[in-house]
């Protein structure tokens, strides 16, 4: 449950989006008033699917790169480059996570158009997702460094 928490959070967000949109359709026929909130809930949930799900994907190394050049280099050089790149990515991703905090705080008083919730709900998804991706990249860098030493 907690070990791969990103998977579960992203799946829960998908369930929320699915239920919101389905209810939006159903409400058109059975409810006294249309579910005007469903599009907004779907949009907020979508951000959580994407950014937290991306972190889950990163854990499983599903984000594809272009290996046309590096694949031609000697193994040791490949590992060295991969280690340096992972370290750089960890820094850049952590910086993006911090920017999400910054804009999230500035958007706390900005309400969403229909439900009047703080817009920062979306930025929080970026913070959670990119923090996790940064930690993952750092973990990769350490693993590669240890592997090169031994």
């Amino acid at each position: 449950m907690f070990r791969n928490w990103e998977d579960n959070v992203a799946a829960a967000a998908l369930a929320v989006v699915f239920l919101a949109v389905s209810w939006g359709v159903l409400a058109r026929y059975v409810a006294p008033r249309p579910a005007v909130w469903s599009g907004e809930v779907a949009s907020l949930g979508f951000a959580w699917i994407v950014f937290v799900g991306a972190a889950a994907g990163a854990r499983q190394h599903l984000h594809i790169g272009v290996d046309l050049v590096t694949a031609r280099l000697p193994g040791a050089v490949q590992r060295g480059i991969a280690c340096a790149v992972s370290l750089f990515l960890a820094l850049a991703l952590a910086y993006i996570a911090w920017l999400a905090v910054k804009i999230g705080i500035q958007s706390l008083n900005r309400p969403t158009p229909v439900l009047r919730l703080p817009s920062s709900i979306t930025h929080a998804a970026v913070f959670v997702g990119f923090s996790s991706m940064a930690v993952g990249a750092l973990r990769d860098a350490i693993t590669l460094y240890r592997g090169a030493k031994s």
Partner: peptide
């Protein structure tokens, strides 16, 4: 069902992160 939602969410995220 939970596993299916996990699978679909992650597949979506990997594609959408590039679009974003």
């Amino acid at each position: 069902i939970p596993a299916m939602f996990r699978e679909a969410a992650i597949a979506t995220a990997v594609i959408m992160l590039i679009i974003c």
